[in-house]
Amino acid sequence: MVNNIKVAIADDHKIFRSGVINTLTPYENITVVFEAEDGAHLLQIMEEQQPDVILMDLKMPNMDGIEATKKVREKYANVKVIVLTMYEDDNFIVHLIENGANAYLLKNAEPGEIYEAICTTYEKGFYFNENVNLALLKKVMHKNKQHFKPTFRNEVQLTDRELEVLRLICNEYTTQEISKEIFLSPRTVEGLRQKLLEKTGAKNIVGLVMHAFRNGLIE
């Protein structure tokens, strides 16, 4: 068990802050070091002292949790942010994770999960539950569908032939099958496969497929 994690809570509802503090009291390795009423208040206190983990509400007056998460990420790279909100919305989840949140929980989460999220983000840097995983997965699939353009952004230029082979590899074609499909000798296909590995900098076929996936080559 990790000892003494310093936790801060930013939420504009006092009653909710007290509720969370009561919930966390039984866990001896967690200390709530301060409460903030909104994002601006949080950043003001953080000039003086920094917690390890922040439980961050999204909707707050003065400065909301989205803005505050960005600011915390800019200024304090090591402080972890766990979003704790009423908003159950995939687009919010993706947006917050993209902007530096380390976890995203709903306010009606079980106390055990809040505790686990605090420990895991502190130790491992992030805690993704099923909600977050699904939202991120959907986003990745969606992105691939939308940018179905056979170009590699990071300066990897592939020829049409190479792209064709890459796509067939992604569709689980063997060298033999590829050579039949595009009327080239197996030797040439093998050469193209090597060339692809070289160009993308992948170490093996799995790396190559990952590369294709990340760059939106798989439908």
Binding site: D11, H13, I15, F16, S18, G19, V20, N22, T23, K59, M86, K107, N108, E110, P111
Partner: peptide, 21 residues
Amino acid sequence: AEDLHDEVGAQLSVLKLNLNQ
């Protein structure tokens, strides 16, 4: 919408936390 979501929502979340205790 905001009153429901922010006020009543926060109170219900506290209710849930209290039930857990």
